[in-house]
Structure formats: C-alpha cells, structure tokens
C-alpha cells in the first residue's frame, strides 16, 4: 500500500517537475543579467537579480501597446462569443425547430478545415469590408473559430439545467426572458465562466490569424508583437523575450486563480431531485 503510494507520488512529482521546469526557467532567465545568461555551467538561481529587462520592455518597446491591444482583443472576443453562444445554446436546447441538429453540426463544420485554408478568404473578406489592420478584424476572425466550440460547450451545460426550473419560473409569473435571466443564467454561470476562460485563452495565445491579418503596430497583439520586435534574423533577445513571456502569462494565471473555484464548485448541483 505505502509502496504504491510512494511510487505514485514519485511519478506525479516527476510529471509536475517536467511541466514546471520550463516555466521556472523562463522566470529565472527573465531576472538574470545578460552576462549570466549563457554561462557554463548554467546557474540555477541567478547570482544577481535584475529587473532591467522588464523595465526596458515597458519603457523602450511597444510592449505596453501590444499588451493593451491583446487585452481589448481578447476581452471583446470573449464577450461577443459568450453572449452569442449562450443565446444560441439556449435556442438549440429549449426550442424545437426543423434542422436544429443539422444546424448544430454545421456550426462545427468549420473545425474540419485547417485554419490556413480559411485564412485567405477571411483576409479578402475583411479587406473588402475595409477592416484590414484593425483590432476589430481580429475580433471577427477569432469569433469564427471560438464560437462553434463555445456553442457546443454551453449547449451541454444548458442541457444539464432541468427544464422544470424554467417551467416553474414561467408558472411563477416570469416572462421567457425573465426566466432566462433569473433562473437559467445563474445556473449556467459555471459553464459561462469556463467558456469565457477558454475563449480568452484561445484569443490571447492566437498567432496565425494575427500574423496574417494585422500588419501595423497599432493593432498588433502580444503574440505577433513580441515575436516581431524581439526575434530578428540576426539576434534573439532572450532576456527580453522571457520577461515578455512572463508578463504574457500573468493575466491568464490571475484569471485562473480567481475563477478556478467557479470551475470546480458545481454551483447548481442538488437543486432538483429525481
């Protein structure tokens, strides 16, 4: 029994270390002075700590603008995707109409095509709309690939909410919209939060669309922005790159830390018997 336990623990910790080490190395590299970076043998902990890379990143580069762009881009995408997916999931689950299932499957169809295939028509479309090189163009592009998955995710959450709850609200005097607002949305909250988190992460880390659709610093998000500024054919600014990576991860880590209790709590369980 105990031997199995020890073996299990060893195994688990090995995996944790394998996952955590690159993150740790990223953090450490970002606070090492330039001179210490390529020393052999490498130092595990930096001999002297420095925040100069962070300072340089914030004061001398376009990092802050990219960061702002990314925040706007990801938040807007998340908001739009969650709003549409919530209403769409409600419709797919609660209303009976012709072609409902077909519709749900067609929505997933976009996933069958690799994004490289979609990207050119999308680019031409956005240029035609006069949206090239804008954050809005990226919001639209991201919505096209985040929405189908969000819809399916929320659909299964929605299907888990007993119809009786809504019926009860209607009998109690609520309108359809009132019942949706008072009863469905609070029950759906864990689903909405996980969908939002998923969409946010997807938009935050997206690279390909951002690379193709946006070619001006005013609209560039972090992913392409950081690559563009720190990786050239002559040189890779490792310290700056690592500092930028740390700062890119921070919003996601914060979001996870705050929302994970929602993700795991199973808020609505136990309300309905039978």
């Amino acid at each position: 029994m105990t031997i199995r336990k020890i073996a299990f623990n060893l195994f688990a910790w090995t995996i944790v270390l394998m996952v955590a080490f690159p993150l740790f190395w990223m953090l450490v590299t970002s606070v090492k002075p330039q001179s210490e970076l390529f020393r052999r043998p490498p130092t595990i902990m930096p001999e002297s700590w420095t925040f100069e890379h962070y300072w340089r990143l914030l004061s001398d580069t376009g990092f802050l603008r990219y960061f702002t762009n990314s925040v706007i881009l990801s938040s807007a995408t998340t908001l739009i995707v969650v709003a549409i997916a919530t209403l769409g999931a409600y419709s797919l689950v609660r209303y009976r109409y012709r072609g409902r299932e077909t519709l749900a499957f067609l929505v997933l169809f976009t996933y069958l095509l690799p994004s490289v295939v979609l990207i050119l028509p999308l680019y031409l479309l956005l240029v035609g709309l006069g949206l090239s090189n804008t954050i809005l163009s990226l919001v639209i592009a991201y919505t096209t690939f985040a929405l189908p998955y969000a819809l399916w995710l929320l659909r299964s959450f929605m299907a888990g909410i007993p119809e009786d709850l809504e019926s009860a609200a209607l009998v109690d005097g609520a309108s359809r919209l009132g019942a949706f607002w008072d009863i469905i949305l609070p029950q759906l909250l864990p689903g909405i939060i996980s969908t939002a988190l998923f969409t946010f992460i997807l938009s935050w880390n997206e690279y390909l669309y951002a690379l193709v659709l946006v070619n001006s610093d005013s609209a560039r998000p972090l992913t392409t922005g950081v690559m563009n500024m720190l990786i050239t054919s002559f040189n890779i600014e490792w310290s700056l790159l690592m500092a930028a990576s740390v700062m890119m991860s921070v919003p996601l880590i914060i979001a996870f830390a705050f929302l994970q209790s929602y993700l795991t709590s199973g808020f609505g369980a136990g309300g309905v018997k039978g």
Binding site: D164, A168, L170, G173, A174, V272, K273
Partner: peptide, 16 residues
Amino acid sequence: GDRDIAMVFQSYALYP
C-alpha cells in the same frame, strides 16, 4: 404566469 395557477413539480424545481 397570467393564468392565476400555481404548480408543484415532481422534481420540485426549486431554484438552486
């Protein structure tokens, strides 16, 4: 809501 009725559901349908 406008029928002046009240209903008790098999599942109780209490708002959790």
